[in-house]
Design a protein around this nucleic acid. Sequence first.
DNA 1: CTGTTAGCGCTTTCAG
DNA 2: CTGAAAGCGCTAACAG
Lengths: 355, 355
Amino acid sequence: MAASTLTEVARLAGVSPATASRVLNGSARKPGSDIAERVRRAADSLGYIPNAQAQGLAKSSSGLIGLIVHDIADPYFAAIARGVQEEARLQHRMVLLATTTGGPQEEREAVAAFAARRADSIVIAGSRSAKPGDEEANTELAAELDRYCRNGGQVAVVGHPVVGAANTEGYHVVKVPNEDLAAALAAELARKHQGEFLIIGGPEGLFTSDDRIRGFQRGLADAGRTAAEVLHYPFNRSGGYEAGTAVAQRIKDAHVGSNGPARLCIFAVNDVMAIGMAGALRSAGLRIPRDAAIAGFDDIETLRDFRPELSTVHLPLEEIGRVATRGAGSTLNGQGTLAVDGQVTLRRSTETPLP
Amino acid sequence: MAASTLTEVARLAGVSPATASRVLNGSARKPGSDIAERVRRAADSLGYIPNAQAQGLAKSSSGLIGLIVHDIADPYFAAIARGVQEEARLQHRMVLLATTTGGPQEEREAVAAFAARRADSIVIAGSRSAKPGDEEANTELAAELDRYCRNGGQVAVVGHPVVGAANTEGYHVVKVPNEDLAAALAAELARKHQGEFLIIGGPEGLFTSDDRIRGFQRGLADAGRTAAEVLHYPFNRSGGYEAGTAVAQRIKDAHVGSNGPARLCIFAVNDVMAIGMAGALRSAGLRIPRDAAIAGFDDIETLRDFRPELSTVHLPLEEIGRVATRGAGSTLNGQGTLAVDGQVTLRRSTETPLP
DNA sequence: CTGTTAGCGCTTTCAG
DNA sequence: CTGAAAGCGCTAACAG
């Protein structure tokens, strides 16, 4: 027993499928109210549900919006996803989810899959990378997006354009001033912090990570401080934890003759890494901010309940999701750059402990 | 410039669309390798991407799996979503996301939307409720699901069947032994805890919440303890926080002449509520476990970095997502009950502080 | 093994 | 204002 079709409804109502279509789904034409009523009655007596695939085929559009994230359970992506979802709902669209462990190769596949489903627009939230070895995959990804746009698709990428992406109509970038914000953070920290700085970054070539590292170094330089050492680890909590176990030893060694205000100040390029780092230090018996200061980036919701309260750069994550979706939703603004801003947010993890 | 079609590919390769279809998409038939090669070449010279809508229409299936959650940014749902996503990928399907603020009304709409898109299966992760006033909406939801199943759809709901859902072919339930686990938790706590118990539940009528409350009370009773008072608050972090501000005062009042081991032991029916509760108590200047013990339920990933370490009942969240998806994925097992198990996990938040 | 012929369910000109 | 007819792009019986 298959679902009932428009034709069946039409027959039951004694009208043509065309008319039934006109009353059941929006149309410029407005059938007579008597007829309309009859059709509607027939429709729900049969429990009619329009076949979106058929509608899509006929109208060549789908009401779908594709979202690409690295990991939906990462609070950063989850928050963006919530924003995307909210905006999608406003637009009466549904969200198609794809998770890619990070490679441009997988992203290309996801884009192709979305294109196959004729998604009206695609939001790419994951960070782009330019690791050596990824060039080819990146080129292919760019080509895929290009084709998608040329076929009328709308794309919004968060944070950083896709490497080599042509400036096609329909291609939007939600600019996040990672570098400037990181610089601002460094400036603030340099003011109240006399010790050395250490940066825990993601894999080399990850744009988001690189931007933040560069910005932080610039901020330090502007404050007349020497450049910080940079360590590279995976861009997630485990990476931060791993880094933390390495750093803990260092701190302990330096601790001989420790002097509070000159202790190490660690900047992890995102909050989950900062959290991992803090966890590792705690496991090693160290305390924040007593034995080291830590700052992160993103201000994920999880931080609200994390102790010590973590200094970070607040990013309007949900808003980013909404803006991206909105930008990719309306063809109004052909192609362009959307912007959001963040804010340095100092909390207890970088306070100078009382002597 | 629209995307190129199978027909175009066929023409370019000098074969019939049927043949092109056979080589480009899996088919029992295997065209000659010379022809096949020609078609494949034509296909990617044109950058051909099959139109999934058309395929779906023709095959009446879509490769889509619909997921319904309350809030994708809630760690509980995010973890389940990750599991669903993983399994979906294994099955070469894509996940369609819908978030409902909780009402059966919205869930009904989501199911209808999935049905319209001809999703092969639907996973409902949100908790079902039987609030007075929801009866009608619940009935409609059940009817919608029923129809969906009758039309060949597969459904898996997590935790609790939909109220009034007929035992249709294709309807699966991932049983979570909430009640028993809560009872086990209560038993453990009763053993090491002499003070009173207090339960912070979700809204009355929410099955997950009610089951856990019932189980906990049963566990207390079996241990010869008097029933705990139950407070009802929203089923999220805010609810827990709100509850916490109310409870804090109580604790302080009782604190006059406090005696460590007899302090209050609070059971919040899920971890996010427990976290909210803990936050509120901390804001009020109270400390866990010194001034009160707290336990939650779910063991969300966030707990790993929460302090004090929270006692809870571990649930294999990702696994639940996978199992649900798997159950709803294969028509093999017509209809039935899938099960997962949890485990009481005691941590520092319920330890008895040293005198 | 390949090509032809019908649709899948809906929208949309175009007549009436 | 309504109906008839022609597809949207692809698959699946059938023939050849």
